[in-house]
Design a binder for these strands. Structure first.
Lengths: 154, 154
DNA sequence: TCGCTCCTTTGACTCCGTCCAATCAGCCCC
DNA sequence: GGGGCTGATTGGACGGAGTCAAAGGAGCGA
């Protein structure tokens, strides 16, 4: 699920991102373009520091604070999604169809789980008077690799 | 949902907790007894620092680190539950039937949502080869109060 | 009651996220 | 094509949450 770390971001990547930013009502600044291009090129779920250090390795140095700002904006306009995996560092991924996450308790891997409905809220809750915006499901357990390893050790 | 903060913990409270600790296979130490008694007496979802400061106010001063240790043990043996409400500070609650949580985006209130199944895992995920231990649902939206306030302001 | 073992406590440390203020740049309008 | 406004970026500093390690203390079986 974790895509390969991209080795470069081309001008075409970032300029393409610029159009999507303007279409979403955001100014097409360089930090936003590079972060959005990186999310597009790098499948999976990434922490802020991972994004920041990867951008630095690719020659697009960006302060941590800027990555936070950009991600907040991208999430606000729907171009990125916070990947809810419970307490701990926040993870982000590129926007796609509404889905859930499986977290491996052994190795920490995060895997997308398709949502049967595909739109939120996909479940309903009996909370009188409340407006439910979304229902996020976090599955926990052992991934295939960790389950196999546990079976061998047992 | 947030219960009233208890004003005292009696010896009966803590000694009763002692029996449950031993039954669960844990030594009945004073920190564990007081934390467990507090969770019993204080309904709702509480952060580590809230528990620590409340214990201090009740005359049972306990270092933050000890609260962490105790809660880890209580969760391990099933006497307490981590209340999953997404990134941020971890919340704990006393053990009860398996359920989910509704988080108000306006005021941050956390409300228990009964699970239709009542046991985990209550949902299944299509993750090939993986063993699913639990499926935790986090509902987000606006509670009745915040929804009413938003309607008035609109 | 003794002594082993596990638990508690203390202090420091790391990491994540936020706040603030000054500087910079995108983009609208002329 | 250029000027200026407005919003974005940047850097430093701060606070909170959680973790680590080691020494002292308490529970509980013998």
């Amino acid at each position: 699920m974790e895509g390969p770390r991209p080795t470069r971001l081309t001008d075409a990547d970032t300029s393409g991102a610029g159009g999507r930013l303007r279409a979403a009502g955001l100014r097409a600044t360089r930090p936003r373009q590079t972060v959005l291009a990186l999310l597009d090129a790098w499948a999976g779920h990434h922490a802020v520091d991972d994004l920041s250090s990867t951008l630095a390795d690719l020659g697009h140095r960006l302060p941590r604070q800027s990555v936070y700002n950009v991600l907040d904006d991208l999430v606000r306009v729907g171009l990125a999604l916070p990947a809810d995996t419970g307490p701990g560092r926040a993870l982000y991924e590129r926007a796609s169809e509404w889905h859930h996450h499986f977290v491996c308790l052994g190795c920490g891997t995060v895997v997308d789980v398709p949502c049967a409905i595909g739109a939120k809220p996909c479940l309903d809750a009996a909370v009188p008077g409340a407006e439910i915006d979304e229902a996020q499901v976090i599955f926990r357990g052992r991934c295939a690799d960790c389950a196999a390893r546990a079976a061998v050790e047992a």
